[in-house]
Design a protein around this nucleic acid. Structure first.
Lengths: 228, 228
DNA sequence: CCCATTCAAATTATCTATAATTTTTACAGC
DNA sequence: GCTGTAAAAATTATAGATAATTTGAATGGG
């Protein structure tokens, strides 16, 4: 009743700690802060014009997300990732997104599939990695959210963030087309009500991450990752 | 080199915040603190003889584990769980433990399976819920740890904690025998190298949680949960 | 008698300050 | 010239203090 009619713009859970956590997460995912870099509470606190107490709380969040690693009295560092870990995240995503899709399928509407199709198109049109990643994430979120399992969706979101790190770290244009193709195949299966095929496609699509260090045309085996 | 030979007892990551987090998690899981109960930072700080700063950091951890819920300026409460959430956790466990077992299977040794068998036996012999839960967890951990996927194992651990809440909340002796039977079947499959069957058994075993509100003999449909 | 409003107590979120630990730097010895 | 030790600087972790919000209670009106 006494709640103000128009909530100020978009600050749902407003606390300095969460705000810092989100911004730092974005920087880590986008690669603005390098893996292994130290996160010094005082410096970050100074940058945000706060004390280090909320910064430390933000660190705990990042730690739980797997984006930072805290050693007891030695400080917090940006989590570094090996190919092993990329694969691990991919496997987890495959398992959980498959589960989510299976539960979401009965609740998928034509409108949702349409929106997912639109997200795929947006991915095609995007020229920079960032907007492509956004569109890709939108696609996955659209078809999975209807499962109505908040904990599962939160876990998937964290894994997406981990995946996005690799995406930003090494971008290859070909992924775009590959992902695009996979997305359309998934949508086609869903439209036909073939949930099993859709789940299998989604799982393979996601698992594709990091599975193939790209063998360039001239044997240039660049360390490259793929993110669906 | 300069590392002391015998690390003082067992304090690997020693910080007040993590210690408080662990203790609070234990209380929440065991049901010592009721779902929905408010966690007041000052009171907890006083109890542990600390300031509330580390307490707040512990809260962030609990939040990430899904054991507590924090509303911005209104405090932290113990997360309450509905049957829906029980099922959700069960499904997630089924998916992730299946994945873990698939990757662990190639590295399973006779010794490990022996130890798992022993854990099952220990479960049989335990008279109180607490020690039974401990044995059960040991079983799962033994056969899954060899997968060597730390992030996956951490996720599973958190889900185990969530499951354990329901276990402690409503204990039925019959679960014991059911779980016991499932565990042995899984071990038998693993011994025969039949990974697919083992994974399927494990998934069904885990998914069993919360799936059947027990129809008591006299139609006494007690709200009851099952935890494997 | 019930409901809304106002004031007080409690509680949260943050800041400033202090103690303890670690990393860095400088220096002496080999 | 390199290695190991010791003091200095930086940084982390916690405590104590303050401002702001929320919860609860008491009071007055319908």
């Amino acid at each position: 009743m006494a709640r103000s009619v128009a909530t100020k713009s978009e600050a749902p859970d407003d606390t300095i700690a969460t705000r810092i956590s989100r911004i730092l997460a974005d920087r880590i995912v986008s690669g603005t802060i390098e893996p292994g870099a130290r996160l010094r509470q005082d410096h970050i606190a100074a940058e945000f014009g706060t004390s280090h107490v909320p910064v430390r709380e933000a660190f705990r969040r990042l730690e739980a997300q797997g984006l930072a690693i805290s050693e007891p009295r030695r400080g917090v560092r940006v989590a570094s990732f090996t190919l092993e870990e990329v694969k691990e995240v991919a496997e987890m995503r495959a398992a959980l997104e498959g589960l989510a899709l299976r539960h979401a399928a009965p609740h998928l509407t034509a409108a949702i599939l349409e929106a997912a199709e639109a997200a795929t198109k947006a991915g095609d049109l995007s020229r920079d990695v960032r907007s492509w990643e956004e569109a890709n994430r939108r696609f996955h979120r659209l078809i999975l959210t209807p499962c109505g399992m908040p904990r599962l969706l939160a876990a998937i979101d964290d894994l997406h963030a981990a995946s996005a790190r690799f995406l930003f770290a090494s971008w290859q244009t070909q992924w775009e087309t590959r992902t695009d193709h996979d997305h359309r195949a998934i949508l086609a299966a869903l439209r036909q009500g073939d949930v099993d095929t859709a789940c299998a496609l989604l799982a393979r699509h996601v698992r594709w991450i990091g599975q193939r260090p790209i063998d360039g045309p001239a044997g240039q085996k660049r360390k490259a990752f793929v993110v669906g």
